[in-house]
Design a protein around this nucleic acid. Sequence first.
RNA 1: GCCUCGGUGGCGGAAUUGGUAGACGCGCUGGAUUCAAAAUCCAGUUCUCGCAAGAGAGUGGGGGUUCGAUUCCCCCCCGAGGUACCA
Length: 934
Amino acid sequence: MEYQPRPIEQKWQKHWEENDTYKVSNDSNRPKYYVLDMFPYPSGAGLHVGHPLGYIASDIYSRYKRLKGFNVLHPMGFDAFGLPAEQYAIDTGIRPAVSTDKNIVRYKEQMSNLGFSFDWSREVKTCDPNYYKWTQWIFTQLFAHYYDQAADKALPIEDLVATFEQEGNANVKAATTQTEAFSAAAWNAMSEKEQRDVLMNYRLAYREIGYVNWCEELGTVLANDQVKDGISERGGHPVVQKAMPQWNLRITAYADRLLYDLETIEWSNALKTMQSNWIGRSTGAQMFFNVEGNDDQIEIYTTRPDTIFGATYMVLAPEHELVAKLTTAEQQKDIDDYLAYSQARSEIDRMSDKQVTGAFTGAYAINPFTGKKVPIWIAEYVLISYGTGAIMAVPSDDERDQRFAEKFGLEIIPVVDKSDYPGATLDDKVGEIINSDFLNGMEVKEAIVEMNKRVEEMGIGKAKVNYKLRDAGFSRQRYWGEPFPIVYDKNGFAEALPLDQLPLELPETEDFKPGKGGKSPLSRLDAWVTLENGYTRETDTMPAVAGSSWYYLRYMDPNNPAAFASQESVNYWQDVDLYVGGAEHAVAHLMYARFWHKFLYDKGLVPTNEPFKKLINQGMIQGVIEFAYYQKSTGQFISEELIADYEGEDIAQMPVHIDFVTDYGSDKSYLSEEGIEQFKNWRPEYKNAEFVTTEDSDRFYTKSEVGKMSKSKFNVINPDLVIEEHGADVFRMYEMFLGPIEASKPWDTQGITGVSKFMRRFWNLFFTNEQFTISEEAANKAELKVLHATIKKVTEDIERFSFNTCVSAFMEVSNDLRKMKCNKRSVLEPLTILLAPFAPYVTEELWQLLGKEGSVHHASYPTHDESYLKEDEIEYPISINGKKRATAMFPSDASKEDIEKAALEIEGIQKWLEGKTVRKIIVVPKRMVNVVIG
RNA sequence: GCCUCGGUGGCGGAAUUGGUAGACGCGCUGGAUUCAAAAUCCAGUUCUCGCAAGAGAGUGGGGGUUCGAUUCCCCCCCGAGGUACCA
């Protein structure tokens, strides 16, 4: 019987669904194991071949763990709130809820074709009110707590109020933006507004003025990636930074725990380093510089207080509050021009640009140690969001300060002598201090300690730990997100809604355009916004990271109406044992989820300190656009069949780089000369094609293809089509075979034939003359050796997530058995189980043909026996001076001396020894021999 | 710019602890089968020179450590991801 994948796959897919084969119970005496995929955003483009890579890997691992006897939780859901659905709604009038649901249906269909063992009864959607009820609830809890640094955990805000009433804030150690101290009397004398404002400075969810990308022409707030070079991507209008009140989460309160707990989890060092750098803990000094001629002080933060004698000027971020005040009349124009320039630039623009820019305010500060006047500049290399938004510049000992000083002709005083440290860079905290009065002769490290002491004694500052990590901006002026569970009373005081008023459902509307002044579309829904007694609702919504910060907990108990998950379920599943997802989430999502988890841990609601024990980043599959067409209006390559519900963001992510030019005047894009070259390199079959655009349509074609349009359109590789042709088992194995799970690699449809061939050959091992034939004869030594070598190899490789080499091993064993003409049950049956995690359908069919009861996926995993793998003889490479000159077989138990002696007598070695002296012979048993001659 | 990762045949990749570089597959070349093609099967395939035996070179570039380096160290080049409102 010929191997025909589709009928087999359809048969078993139906069977599994009808029999709840993958349903998971929270009640089991087997050990638990939780395998989680990062849930997808359901885009209109559907699943492409890049998506399933991680899902296949996690499915293989889940199935492997099940065969090994674990109770495996392996769920899937949808990160369903987000900007693309809203943009699509603005463009088409189709409600986000409708388009999102449609996309989800499509995703689920595609995923079930792939044979994943998800327990779909546990599906979660972040846009489902039954789900976001708890997202909102967690937010209200963050609002109702502060971070107590003495207890090192979150505590209720009422506790804090009680303390304030008793003793003020002098003894409170908390993560706060409150700078002023107050006594109990002062607290009790405060107005309600003052008290509320103070508490806002302590809450873990708090409201504060923040900056957004504002585009006046579009009347809307833009995401960073919708802005390029200070211009909106759509329409090419100018974008500026606008101050607006925003909700924030005080993630910085958890900075130290987020940093130190990295040591307790099994993530790659690369990822931990990235997280740790993102947190960016540094110890330094906070210091105040007096401004000449008035009472203002400039607060700076420096990790190098020891270099203060070299501080010859100061730099403020352009947004710094003192800029307007300090600027002198003569310098006003320079500063205004510079502010206009810098306002239009994003942080990335500012940091990635090598140009040195800045402007002089005309004002001077006093260096507290030299007593000298130092000019105050503004420059975009100082960021308002890091430290205090102001620096003392030491051009002799900081590269950026140095370039700045050189360009603007500012004084440079060397203060660190690094001549004892050849090769040390400016960044290295080493050297001997010079030109620095009482610090002269000290080593940098000593000098830092001494300076911190002096600064504190003089009362001009203190030692301080600083973090690059910033609080999370949590407000979006958008429709398609969770409404904040916040109302404002007639005084404008924020109050959180109690649980019995949750979920606060997102109201329906047909109008998704931004509201006045960049407010959320919700602000227009007066009936929804306005409540009794002068209360009004918050009209901003939460960002997509909200829903994804805790979804892994909901899978444990997805339908619970009374809690985000029952305590029993959380205590049973504990945490995620293996988390698989893209490296693009390596920092932000993982940081927020860890933060929320720690908060819930502080509240005693989860039993673990960290949510994700082990984490694997899958790479991207590149070049996934097989056939696409180019749409001039959007400048994107997209697929014909998906044009109806095209949203674009997935395509934009695809790492195929075809340069095209956008003409902002006409708002049209077209391929550049260079782009056509790149395109031809990428698709050599178009090498001789003539490229034209047609005026009547919005599309770009190659001229040679105009005749046969249906084939000329380019198409996103849709897994459905590949599965239709080769079967899901082959598709799964091919994706794994492409390369290491963590690497990015290109998709090449041609290569799938190799895996297809393997699958047919494997299948044919069970058939003789088209008849299923299995031999009950005992296996011979050679057969047992390949079987057990394969069990060993595949098992070890699964454990280290090296699935591509597993596929190679399966190919090898099937080639070997084919040559041996082996169709013995004792060999093929364990191999069928071994292959089951990779090719779940075909192995299920073969299992049935083998006459076995039940599912192969509930079988027991085979173990290898080392005794079958023993070699009598080992082939040794014999090298002369490290260069291989011969090989020889030696008994596996041969002694070093015997090998040494025998190696020198080999003919191919002898000729190299003529006229030379053997200086040394290195024999590594079971490995190699190296003869050193001279 | 900064942080992280990566660079191995024509292509995807393998080499798990410093020990035979190129497993496995695609592609390509030759052969069998076929009226022919597809499919299938067999053999070969890092590059250079050579009929061959063999020799030389070789893991982005340069340098170093070592008996021995794709693997460890230093410098440089190139690519990818992230850079806080894409998800």
